[in-house]
Simulated assay, not measured.
Amino acid sequence: MQNFYFWSYFPAGMLPAIIACIVGAAVVVRMHSERVETDGFRGLAAIALVCGGSINLSLWTALLALTHVGRLDITLVWVALLAALVGSWYGLAVTRFKAVALAPEVGGAAVGMSMSAAAYLAILAHHGVYRVNCEAEPLVVGIPVIVVFAALAFGQVKRRNLHHWRLSATALLAAAFLVMSWSVFLGCSAPAIGGNSLESDAKNAAVLRADGLARDRADLG
């Protein structure tokens, strides 16, 4: 079963996802700090579109890092995109409530929850070859980290109480994106074959060999 654990994949496979996380976080922080207060609804819609798009770009580039990527459930792919967009819009709207002292942190936490929801839908949408399914345990562990980092990032953008507030906010949001992407990558890198439990490595190896032989015979025939 060693072919189905994360250390057996290309080390550089996650590089595009890491770049997407950092660039997406930088753009979101910059737009949120410059536009959400001045452009009204249009600014809110624009930053929500960029934030939701960055969430999904980070997720799907992480999935592409897998060597056993099979098919994706298109319906769940669209639902994940919708969850990221709607959750981002709602969270960003909450950050604008001036009457609530912790509105930026609450809104950021809402964005973090939308990231977690999109990540879970991405896990459900992935159906790899050899009946490989993803596991949600790494994401469950990562959800509190994602929510806290996103809350701190948007709180920093709003309060700007540090000298390098934009850099710290970008680092926090990028960390939330990275935890989200890495949780999905890990969950789909150590999957179960034909169910949620494995009886033995020998049995699974035999299943893979038989499946490969059947494919070869079909190709020859």
Results as ranks from 00 to 15, higher is better:
residue 115 M to Q: 11
residue 88 S to N: 05
residue 113 M to N: 03
residue 8 S to T: 15
residue 17 A to M: 02
residue 58 S to K: 05
residue 11 P to T: 14
residue 59 L to Y: 10
residue 68 H to Q: 08
residue 63 L to D: 03
residue 25 A to G: 10
residue 8 S to N: 15
residue 36 V to N: 00
residue 12 A to E: 11
residue 10 F to M: 13
residue 38 T to F: 09
residue 101 A to R: 13
residue 74 I to M: 14
residue 52 G to C: 12
residue 120 Y to L: 15
residue 57 L to F: 08
residue 93 A to D: 09
residue 106 V to H: 02
residue 28 V to Q: 00
residue 120 Y to T: 03
residue 84 A to H: 06
residue 6 F to P: 14
residue 123 I to Y: 07
residue 130 Y to M: 12
residue 105 E to R: 13
residue 7 W to Y: 14
residue 83 A to Y: 07
residue 126 H to T: 03
residue 91 G to M: 06
residue 83 A to I: 11
residue 64 L to P: 07
residue 104 P to R: 02
residue 111 V to A: 12
residue 108 G to S: 05
residue 122 A to Q: 01
residue 59 L to V: 12
residue 110 A to F: 01
residue 49 L to I: 14
residue 38 T to M: 10
residue 38 T to P: 07
residue 6 F to G: 12
residue 116 S to A: 15
residue 54 S to F: 11
residue 23 V to G: 01
residue 52 G to M: 13
residue 12 A to N: 10
residue 98 K to F: 08
residue 24 G to N: 02
residue 78 W to R: 07
residue 125 A to S: 09
residue 97 F to W: 12
residue 117 A to Y: 06
residue 64 L to G: 08
residue 22 I to D: 01
residue 72 L to G: 03
residue 44 L to Q: 09
residue 52 G to F: 07
residue 50 V to G: 08
residue 48 A to Q: 01
residue 24 G to H: 02
residue 92 L to H: 03
residue 114 S to E: 03
residue 23 V to Y: 02
residue 85 L to S: 05
residue 19 I to M: 12
residue 77 V to T: 10
residue 66 L to A: 01
residue 19 I to Y: 09
residue 7 W to S: 15
residue 46 A to Q: 14
residue 110 A to I: 12
residue 72 L to I: 13
residue 25 A to Y: 08
residue 123 I to D: 03
residue 122 A to R: 00
residue 12 A to P: 04
residue 32 H to G: 09
residue 6 F to D: 10
residue 66 L to N: 11
residue 10 F to C: 07
residue 62 A to D: 04
residue 42 R to G: 15
residue 111 V to R: 06
residue 52 G to I: 03
residue 21 C to K: 00
residue 4 F to T: 10
residue 7 W to G: 05
residue 87 G to V: 04
residue 41 F to Y: 12
residue 74 I to W: 11
residue 49 L to Y: 01
residue 57 L to I: 12
residue 54 S to D: 00
residue 13 G to S: 14
residue 38 T to H: 15
residue 59 L to A: 08
residue 92 L to K: 04
residue 54 S to W: 01
residue 42 R to V: 11
residue 81 L to K: 14
residue 36 V to T: 07
residue 54 S to K: 07
residue 68 H to R: 04
residue 55 I to R: 08
residue 105 E to H: 09
residue 45 A to T: 15
residue 107 G to C: 07
residue 46 A to H: 08
residue 76 L to A: 04
residue 110 A to T: 14
residue 36 V to K: 01
residue 66 L to I: 05
residue 70 G to I: 15
residue 108 G to V: 05
residue 87 G to F: 01
residue 130 Y to V: 10
residue 82 L to E: 12
residue 24 G to C: 09
residue 16 P to E: 02
residue 97 F to M: 06
residue 99 A to E: 11
residue 11 P to K: 13
residue 37 E to P: 00
residue 9 Y to I: 08
residue 29 V to K: 02
residue 48 A to T: 06
residue 27 V to Q: 04
residue 99 A to Q: 11
residue 8 S to K: 13
residue 119 A to F: 09
residue 44 L to V: 11
residue 64 L to K: 13
residue 110 A to D: 05
residue 38 T to W: 13
residue 73 D to L: 06
residue 83 A to D: 03
residue 37 E to F: 08
residue 11 P to E: 11
residue 69 V to M: 10
residue 66 L to Y: 01
residue 51 C to P: 00
residue 8 S to W: 05
residue 77 V to P: 00
residue 72 L to T: 05
residue 32 H to T: 02
residue 47 I to P: 01
residue 27 V to R: 00
residue 48 A to D: 03
residue 105 E to Q: 13
residue 75 T to C: 09
residue 116 S to W: 05
residue 42 R to F: 15
residue 129 V to F: 15
residue 98 K to L: 10
residue 101 A to I: 08
